[in-house]
């Protein structure tokens, strides 16, 4: 029998000097109460944000607050099984939900001095550094698509986009770049 486990076809996206697709990753949605947060923190060795709209990064792992009982875990592609095992053991006795969404969405990177100006073509949030500082993350809208927007650097944003919206979001940013970058 053939082994196709490495044959991945991520959605195609437009790219330009400001916009590019990031590598595939392992992603989990963790949902549960405060006990779950504490236990997950311990198991992962990564802070799990309790404050709204915060992301914590530790090494290659990141945990993003999406809601008061909802976190997005992102780690390298190869770590899928390890994370599931780790959390599965640690949260065994706590009511929670852990769901693999690695393929549900893809990551886009928007970088450069015009990054926030470009995003402002479709995102109604204030992206000024004091209103949307580094390590802030949130679900929001980019034009007609929902995204998770995470500021990873002063001039660097990571967008998590459901895969069927990736083409739209990247084409939108490519069009919006005219006259901006």
């Amino acid at each position: 029998m053939r082994d196709l486990s490495a044959a991945r076809s991520p959605p195609l996206v437009s790219a330009n000097t400001t916009l590019r697709a990031l590598a595939p990753a392992t992603r989990y949605i963790l949902r549960g109460g405060p006990h779950v947060r504490a236990a997950a923190e311990q198991a992962l060795g990564t802070r799990v944000p309790g404050n709204a709209c915060r992301a914590f990064v530790s090494g290659e792992r990141a945990v993003l607050w999406l809601g008061p009982d909802e976190w997005l875990l992102i780690s390298p592609q190869a770590s899928a099984a390890a994370i599931a095992a780790l959390l599965g053991a640690a949260l065994k006795d706590l009511p929670h939900s852990l769901v693999d969404v690695s393929h549900r969405q893809i990551a886009l990177s928007v970088t450069g001095p015009k990054a926030s100006a470009l995003l402002a073509a479709g995102c109604p949030l204030d992206l000024e550094a004091d209103a949307f500082p580094v390590d802030m993350c949130t679900r929001t809208m980019l034009a007609k698509a929902e995204i998770v927007l995470w500021r990873t650097g002063t001039e660097e944003f990571r967008l998590e986009v459901w895969r069927s919206f990736a083409a739209y979001v990247s084409q939108f940013l490519d069009e919006a770049a005219r006259g901006i970058i």
Partner: peptide, 12 residues
């Protein structure tokens, strides 16, 4: 109720 929902439409 201790139950949580996650959309997996695009996961599969």
């Amino acid at each position: 109720l201790e139950v949580w929902l996650t959309s997996t439409t695009e996961q599969w």
